[in-house]
Each structure stands twice: as structure tokens, then as C-alpha cells.
């Protein structure tokens, strides 16, 4: 059982810290002059962060398909990434990936 005061202290700290992090540059946006180089840098942020969110979660996931060494999620993700270059639809990529993973899991 988590103590109420301990819980509230932690939540208050998380709220203040997270709002500060999320709002820091947005709050300063009207006072900042952003150069073209920095604007270009912003276009790299998805490429810099999203693979770091995706990769460990799939690569280190231990599955049950022995033929693929338990790395069926990683294999499906790679195939979904390739498919995404041809068909740029979020719904298609998610549906394709989930269906493929389901089939691989059932076949093995």
C-alpha cells in the first residue's frame, strides 16, 4: 500500500517537472528567433528519437517462435518498415504487422 502523502509528493514533483519540460521551449517560442539551421535540426527529431523508442522494445522482446530465435516481433517490424515505404498508411502498417505476427505465432 502506497502512503498517501508519499504518493502526492511524487505526483506533484512529476507534474511540475513534466509541465516544465513540455512547456519550456513552447513558453519561450515568441521570444526566440529560430535560425534556419535549427529549424532543419527539428526535422531530424523523429529520426533521432522514434527508433530509440521502437528498437529496444522489439529487439529485446523474447517471443516464442523458435525458428526466428524468439525475435518474431523484430522480424515483423522490419517487414512492416519496408512495407511502409511503399504504402504510406498508418492503418495498413499496423494491420499488416499485427496480422503477420498473429499468423507467425499460430503457424509455429
Amino acid at each position: 500500500m502506497i502512503d498517501k502523502n508519499y504518493f502526492l509528493l511524487n505526483v506533484a514533483g512529476l507534474v511540475i517537472g513534466t509541465v516544465f519540460i513540455r512547456g519550456f521551449f513552447i513558453a519561450l517560442s515568441s521570444k526566440m528567433n529560430i535560425s534556419i539551421k535549427v529549424k532543419e535540426l527539428f526535422t531530424f527529431i523523429p529520426a533521432a528519437i522514434f527508433p530509440a523508442l521502437i528498437m529496444p522494445a522489439t529487439f529485446f522482446h523474447q517471443g516464442a517462435v523458435e525458428v526466428l530465435g524468439g525475435k518474431e516481433r523484430f522480424c515483423v517490424l522490419m517487414l512492416a518498415a519496408v512495407a511502409c515505404f511503399f504504402i504510406r498508411s498508418t492503418l495498413f502498417v499496423i494491420g499488416f504487422g499485427l496480422a503477420l505476427l498473429f499468423m507467425i505465432s499460430k503457424i509455429s
Binding site: 523523429p46 522514434f50 515483423v76 517490424l77 512492416a80 498508418t90 499496423i94 505476427l101
Partner: peptide, 12 residues
Amino acid sequence: FAIPLSFVALLV
């Protein structure tokens, strides 16, 4: 698994 898949779809 739809979460990493959705990130792929939004990243590409």
C-alpha cells in the same frame, strides 16, 4: 505491438 508499428508508420 501496435505501438512500435505505429511509430514506424509515423516515422517513415
